[in-house]
């Protein structure tokens, strides 16, 4: 699909093997730090710049998050899909870039392309 977009360029980030063993790779692309996360073999690219105060949002703990089930009992969801900015603990869904406490705050996300076991971000 990327080949049809004429105004975007591909930037190599990592091999699929590298991402599988590291869960995320952060690359500098065109002056932007962009993290690519591997969530069960699906790849998501998110800006490593927190919309709160500019912290390195994607360098923090990658984990799940506490939520409640239908009975309002505590449970734990989204294992491996939530990154927390190490400065202030703001949680973001790496699949969408959305801040869990308020969807008004969203980290920019980017398209990811996999070609011959190589992972690219398109800008």
């Amino acid at each position: 699909m990327s080949d049809t977009t004429t105004d975007k360029k591909r930037y190599f980030v990592a091999s699929t093997a590298e991402l599988e063993s590291n869960d995320r790779v952060i690359a500098e692309i065109q002056g932007r730090e962009i993290a690519v996360f591997d969530v069960d073999g699906e790849y998501y690219a998110v800006a490593n710049y927190c919309v709160h105060q500019g912290g390195p949002a994607c360098e923090g703990l990658l984990s799940g998050t506490v939520t409640v089930n239908e009975e309002m009992e505590l449970s734990y969801d989204q294992e491996g899909e939530v990154v927390a900015c190490p400065w202030h603990g703001w949680e973001f869904d790496v699949k969408t870039g959305e801040h869990l406490a308020s969807s008004e705050y969203v980290l920019p996300t980017y398209d990811v392309v996999v070609d011959d076991c190589k992972v690219y971000v398109e800008l």
Binding site: G60, L61, A84, W87
Partner: peptide, 9 residues
């Protein structure tokens, strides 16, 4: 706290 859980480093 978020420090306890590692969400703040």
């Amino acid at each position: 706290t978020p420090v306890t859980t590692g969400k703040v480093q």
